[in-house]
Structure formats: C-alpha cells, structure tokens
Design a protein around this nucleic acid. Structure first.
Lengths: 159, 159
DNA sequence: GTTTATGCAAACGATTTGCATCTAC
DNA sequence: GTAGATGCAAATCGTTTGCATAAAC
C-alpha cells in the first residue's frame, strides 16, 4: 500500500506537478476506500475529518488531474454524479461494473471479458479501441435471494 | 416511419398518457434524427424552429417519460450531458457505441455482441443481467486514415 | 369536469472559475 | 523568488420543481 502511494507520488512528480499535502491526502483516501466508488463529495467528506481546511474545489481539481494521468478512472452510472475509481496498476483497460437496480450496489469485475468482442469490433468496424466502459444493470445476488425469500422489498432505483 | 410514430403514440396511449402535440413533436424529432445522439437541449432547439412556444421543461419531462417506457435510452458519454437514443423496435438490449476520442463522433453497433460475456457473468457472478451499457473509446476509421496520411483501408465493414 | 400536461421562472445540485493568498520547488 | 496550487465565494450549466394556466380526455 505504501509502495503504491509512493509510485503515484512519483508519477505526479514526473509529470512535474507539485506534491502538496492536499494531493497526498486525496490519493490516500482513494487508496483506503478502493472498493467504494467515491464521488468528489465523498472524497471531500473523508478528508475533511482529518484536514478540515481543505476545499471542495481542490478535490475536484486533483481528481481531474489524476484522471488525466490515468491514475483514476472517472465513471458515471447515470445518477448525475461522477465517481472516481483507482485504476488497477498496469491495467490497460477499465474494469467492468455490475450495478444492482434494486439496492444500488456496485460490484467490480477486474477480468477483461471483452477480448474477443474487441477483436470483432476492430476488424469489422475498423475502430481502433483504446479503452472501454462496460456496465451491466440487473439484480445482484443478494437481491435475488431476498426476492425469492419474501416478495416485499421494492426500493426501485432507476437509472 | 409513419408506422413507427403511430406505434409509439399507441404505446403512450396504452400507458394512459395524453397525446399532446408537444409529445408528438418530440418523438418526431427523435425519429428524424435517429443517427445523432441528441441532448435535451438539442431536441429543444430542433422543435423550437417549428414550435417556438415549447418549453425546455416539457422536453425534459417527455424524454424522461419516453425513457420510462423504454422507447428511448438515456446515455451519458461522460461529458456531463444526457443524450437520448431511440431504441430499436423490439430490442431487448441497449446497443453499443464507438466514441472517437479525436473527433468526438459516435457510431452505433446494433448487433448484440455480449451474449457470451453475459452468460459468463450470470454464471460466475450470480448477477441477473437486465441490460448493459458498452462503449468503446478509441480512434474512428476516418481519424485513423487522417493520421496515417491517407493510407487506404477499403475493406467493407460487414457482419 | 377532471385529470394531466404545459410554460415559465425560480430552485437545485454538481462542477467550474476568478482571484487573492499561500507554498513547494 | 516564482510558478503553480489552494481556499473561498461566486458563477455556470444541466436538470428539476412549484405553480397557475391550459388542454386532452
């Protein structure tokens, strides 16, 4: 974990960006909450606990910076908020997501399942693929089990 | 085309929504600009040419309505604007998109290329898929040709 | 006639920006 | 010392909402 932080710091340095405590704090929060899909506001609130003087604008600016450097990926599940996801180290491609339309949970698939599909697209559409976004909308395992158990929970979350 | 409009009108009627001229105008615009990926503002401007008294709020409300009825799909390419795409008649799934990071053009893939991938996901992740969003980011054919100084690549894109 | 839809303007929330101040280098 | 980064507040932009009026049924 410490290694990973250091490597990100080096990336910033290499790209000649200054290493401010705010930037470090933001990266730390992302590392500590890797499984969640934090919005800028989420990151801001986490940091505020320890460093109350940070500004939301700085969070936005830093997240944009990290997106440019391909350290994080900016995703949008259609709810009007951008979320920021640490990219797996060395990952060429963005991972996939499973969004539950019942409970809103988001699961990640790290494997790249699109190899064959991309070959087809590159060949038949003459499109040179650089990255992809794949999200499945459906019912997660927990909600499936809930549904078959008792037909009560109906907290629809439409996208 | 006229048939399609009528069928959509019937869908509205069946769901007991009123058939207002505004709603019809919005559907017409969507039908006339099927290849584009119109934002609410785009739709608004197109309609304004012929019916200047329409309000932007009505456009938003109608597009939301059409999304609920699964007549259109709401997409987001990450530029902060929602776009609305007519769904192919009878399509169970959302079509795929090819977004060019050079020129910003958006191409559509109507075929469903995810059959096998979805089987894998349902089986290995126990996730019941209802719909999907798949977007490839890369370089479109035209921009590739531009980059290589006009290298010819005449193979037909057939499937 | 009742219910639903509309248009307008105001409200809203997420994100961006201008600017004076600060800080990493 | 200087270029770049920050914090704050104000501005911006897409979208939603309240409400009185109008139109579809």
């Amino acid at each position: 974990m410490e290694n990973r932080l250091d490597r990100i710091k080096k990336q910033l340095h290499t790209a000649s960006y200054k290493l401010t405590p705010q930037r470090e704090a933001i990266v730390r929060v992302l590392l500590e909450h890797e499984a969640e899909h934090l919005s800028a506001e989420d990151v801001y609130l986490y940091i505020k606990e320890k460093s109350p003087e940070i500004g939301l604008a700085t969070v936005y600016r830093t997240l944009e910076l990290l997106t440019e450097l391909k350290i994080v990926d900016k995703i949008n599940f259609g709810d009007g908020v951008s979320r920021y996801d640490l990219r797996q180290e060395g990952a060429k491609h963005f991972h996939h997501h499973l969004v539950c339309i019942e409970c809103g949970s988001v699961e990640e698939i790290q494997e790249d399942l699109l190899g064959e599909v991309e070959e087809i697209v590159e060949k038949n559409w003459h499109f040179q693929i650089i990255d992809h976004r794949l999200t499945f909308h459906g019912i997660c395992r927990r909600c499936q089990e809930k549904a078959t158990g008792g037909e009560k929970n109906k907290k629809a979350a439409s996208i």
